[in-house]
């Protein structure tokens, strides 16, 4: 067996950073061949740091790292894609922050998972370009698929019979659809319309190039959003914290933001 090299190079998408020490950052990054990694960027918070601007969250960057006792150190970094459009638009940014929190929440440390890296990269690119409305449900569903939580969409999770066309129900607790004759006890159940079921199946099998052209009705989008949120809550066993900000930004766009802010302020 060969010992792993002391110095290695990889590309990575930075998920988040956390200030530690006088001027350092502890970074959480997603890499194509190493999965989710944590590493220290020494001095990255100094104005004149050569690392600083290359390791901001949501950047795709190329790094040179040295293995350390506990955490690896970042020696050099060069940004490959800064996703500047995402950074400068509040709606896109709030979605990107949700995406990065979701990847961080669902993936274990140091488990290589190339499909997740590709999905994350694809999502960031899409947000930077056209930011199609189908991106969020696509991202959520595929992330669940690649993490081993692919929902069952063809059979009833209770009796195993193939679903006949029609309106069905979905249970996040059992991770899939229910036929009309099954009524299991003590599981939460959400309505699943035929349209939404078709969209979910489409999202599960098609490439993103086909998905971003998909036109979704407002009602279907809302149903998808509810289903995915319930399923993710079941899998993660907690809320995704960035959802709140996502909704605050979306509300601010449709109504007047000040009243929503003051309303949420008086409640808290």
């Amino acid at each position: 067996m060969t010992t792993p090299p002391k110095i290695y190079k990889t590309e990575a998408i930075v998920l988040k950073h956390f200030a530690i020490g006088e001027a350092d950052y502890l970074l959480t990054m997603y890499t194509p061949n190493g999965g989710k990694l944590r590493a220290v960027a020494k001095g990255a918070r100094r104005v004149k740091s050569k690392l600083g601007g290359h390791l901001e969250p949501l950047m795709r960057t190329s790094v040179l790292m040295t293995r350390g006792q506990n955490l690896d150190n970042i020696n050099q970094a060069e940004v490959m894609e800064g996703f500047r459009v995402v950074r400068e638009d509040l709606d896109r940014l709030s979605r990107a922050l949700y995406i990065s929190e979701l990847v961080d929440a669902i993936t274990p440390d140091e488990q290589p998972n190339y499909p997740i890296y590709r999905l994350l990269f694809e999502a960031m690119r899409s947000l930077n370009e056209n930011a199609a409305p189908s991106l969020m449900p696509y991202f959520q569903l595929r992330l669940l698929d690649y993490s081993g939580f692919m929902p069952e969409l063809y059979k009833c999770v209770e009796c195993g019979s193939t679903l006949a066309p029609g309106h069905h129900r979905f249970t996040p607790d059992r991770g899939g659809s229910l036929c009309d004759s099954c009524h299991p006890l003590n599981v939460s159940v959400l309505p699943l319309s035929l349209d939404t079921l078709k969209v979910l199946r489409f999202l599960q099998r098609e490439t993103y190039a086909n998905i971003e052209r998909l036109h979704l009705e407002q009602g279907t989008l809302l149903e998808l959003e509810r289903l995915m949120e319930a399923l993710l809550r079941h899998v993660l066993d907690r809320e995704v914290k960035a959802t709140r900000f996502l909704n605050q930004v979306a509300q601010g766009r449709t109504s007047d933001g000040i009243s929503t802010l003051t309303a949420s302020n008086t409640k808290g």
Partner: peptide
């Protein structure tokens, strides 16, 4: 600052005071 993943939203900052 707003940091959604740490649960810090606009309502936790002194934005209302600014308004």
């Amino acid at each position: 600052v707003i940091s959604p993943a740490s649960g810090i939203g606009p309502e936790n900052l002194k934005i209302r005071e600014l308004l």
